[in-house]
């Protein structure tokens, strides 16, 4: 069992009257990639800001590598790297100056700093851009530079707040590669995202966060499996009756009415159950208009736990009837 590197207990954070974080507790193991998945405004960034000592702990406890973020913020800062959600590069500094500035902020010895800059610029493939001002970099290059910056001090934990927001699919894949690579070398990764595919593909564990609370957490595969074998979407002539009738079948875990039809979560192979359901409905005088079936995706997990979808999801967004309101 690996050591716990981040431990958060009963964290509550308010902005005025709004409770942005409501009693959040979780632990992250050393060497893990852990994601906070949730919509904008769910409280992800607030948790990151508290953990990175930018916001004070109002209530609860949080510690990183054994240091309490309130008691020993200095020790915590020395052990973490951060890639902020928005670009936070000085437009008028060059790539190498940006990294040098960061190294100096952390009081790195000169020689180490120089070799680290050399190494990181290579890793994030910015070797030809050493002396380019950051304002002349593309969006993806800026992100890569920020990741390199976050790694300058070889942190125990790297925080990535929405690391691929606004980037094209190709660049996202490359960033994911870097994240995996960094993680393999031993850095614990804590990332927040509102992209389902990102959380799904990158994380060892995911915490789904909504309205300032963790609604569920676990390995992506477990979260999806918990939803059953298959999801069956039907549009019928009488949706509410269809749920009542089909739910008598043992293999059906749950049935839920949606805007355009019903969705059943089934515990067996859907291809075998589906004909039985259609027959059963027809016997009861209910016509089936459209059929769709798929394995549960992270979207489904999210919808299941929060009762809604994340708007503006990633490019490789999974199908679900609600996201195609015009379909018929």
């Amino acid at each position: 069992m690996p050591d716990t590197i981040i431990s958060v207990n009963g964290l509550i954070h308010r902005y005025g009257d709004t409770e942005a974080v409501r009693n959040i507790s979780f632990e992250i193991a050393d060497g893990e990639i852990f994601s906070f998945l949730g919509p904008n405004g769910a409280g992800k960034s607030t948790v990151i800001n508290v953990l990175t000592t930018l916001l004070p702990v109002q209530q609860g406890h949080a510690s990183i590598a054994g240091f309490d973020v309130m008691v020993d913020p200095g020790e915590v800062r020395r052990r973490i790297g951060i890639v902020f959600q928005e670009v936070t590069l000085d437009r008028d500094m060059t790539v190498s100056e940006t990294l040098a500035f960061h190294g100096m902020l952390y009081d790195m010895p000169r020689d180490l700093m120089k070799s680290r800059i050399q190494e990181l610029i290579g890793i994030v493939e910015l070797s030809g851009k050493r002396d380019t001002l950051t304002k002349h970099l593309s969006g993806g290059m800026k992100r890569r530079l920020e990741i390199a910056r976050g790694l300058m001090t070889r942190p125990r934990v790297l925080f990535l707040d929405e690391p691929t927001i606004g980037l094209d699919p190709q660049t996202r894949m490359r960033i994911w590669d870097y994240i995996h690579q960094i993680n393999r070398e031993g850095t614990t990764i804590f990332l927040t995202t509102h992209y389902m595919d990102e959380a799904d593909q990158l994380s060892d564990r995911i915490g789904i966060i909504d309205h300032g609370q963790i609604v569920t957490s676990g390995k992506p595969i477990d979260l999806k499996n918990a939803l059953g074998q298959d999801l069956i979407y039907l549009e019928t002539t009488d949706n509410s009756s269809a749920i009542r009738i089909a739910s008598t079948q043992e293999a059906i875990i749950s049935g839920e009415q949606k805007k355009n039809g019903v969705v059943f979560i089934v515990s067996e192979d859907g291809t075998r159950i589906l004909p039985r359901i259609i027959d059963l409905l027809r016997e009861n005088g209910i016509g089936v208009l459209t059929i769709n079936m798929k394995k549960p995706s992270m979207d489904d997990v999210f919808v299941h736990h929060t009762g809604r979808e994340i708007r503006d999801a990633g490019p490789e967004k999974g199908f679900s009837p609600k996201s195609r309101p015009g379909r018929r």
Binding site: L54, F84, V87, L89
Partner: peptide, 13 residues
């Protein structure tokens, strides 16, 4: 306002 100070405030400086 540009977020540049966050890097500094999150550092041990």
């Amino acid at each position: 306002n540009w977020g540049l100070l966050r890097e500094v405030f999150a550092s041990p400086l």
